[in-house]
Design a protein around this nucleic acid. Structure first.
Lengths: 121, 121
DNA sequence: CCCATAGTTCGGAACTTCGGAACTAATGGA
DNA sequence: TCCATTAGTTCCGAAGTTCCGAACTATGGG
């Protein structure tokens, strides 16, 4: 098992961040890591919404988030703990992450409204 | 030639916007359409940076931007004019586009600094 | 030492992207 | 009217990427 690679904050590219967060599962995982007091084991995320994510796909999602510079992962015994790199990324690209996370949050809200409208007909 | 499809603003998804702008060429094209007084023909963009983009790839880039809800394209005789949908997208996802465009702009600026540093050594 | 748990790697099938060549559509002469 | 030109689209094969099951590695407890 090779060591976990993390880019220096000055090597983080906007296209890598957008690519990482263009996947709704990865965006949800990242949002959860932030909400969870900035530390979360990979295994704490076994599903996104009602969809179960296979282990190998999850492992890859964490790798993409890590290599984009969005999270920092450390092995602690048998598990890996993930921290958000929000403050570093915010300093380099102000407003980027807030805009993305808010966009997903408001999109979920509009889904809920649409579902309620559909259900009441 | 089938008519150009544009999603209604309420059907625009954050993941489609991120996917469209995760490609630096497309982000540069979108930034250019905004700067150019919000109207630009496809042919006005023949290269991004020093890299020439083939017509078929360009056509596809415009299609991705259009279907993500970022631009509105209208045929005017032989050419297609592209308008940014910034104000609509900004109303739906506040701060999203500004965060992304600023991130790319500051990334280019840091490239220039890096190149100057390298050149002076 | 063996087992359970947590995560990674491998590899093939399915999907996406890229770009050259052939195409369509509108326009401006001759 | 017919042809040439310009602007963009479509087609399609090669190359690349993603997804996920199965096999694997690493750590810690009993």
């Amino acid at each position: 098992m090779r060591p976990l690679f993390h880019p220096a904050i000055e090597d983080v590219r906007p296209e890598a961040i957008l690519h990482a967060l263009a996947d709704p599962s990865r965006a949800a995982i990242f949002a959860k890591i932030m909400r969870a007091g900035c530390v979360e084991a990979c295994s704490a995320v076994s599903a996104v919404g009602d969809r179960v994510i296979p282990k190998s796909s999850l492992s890859n999602h964490f790798k993409v988030l890590r290599e984009a510079g969005l999270i920092r992962s450390e092995r602690h015994g048998v598990e890996v703990r993930n921290h958000s790199r929000w403050t570093e990324v915010e300093a380099r690209f102000p407003g980027l992450l807030a805009g993305i996370i808010n966009a997903y949050a408001s999109d979920i809200a509009s889904d809920v409204r649409a579902a309620k409208t559909a259900a009441s007909q």
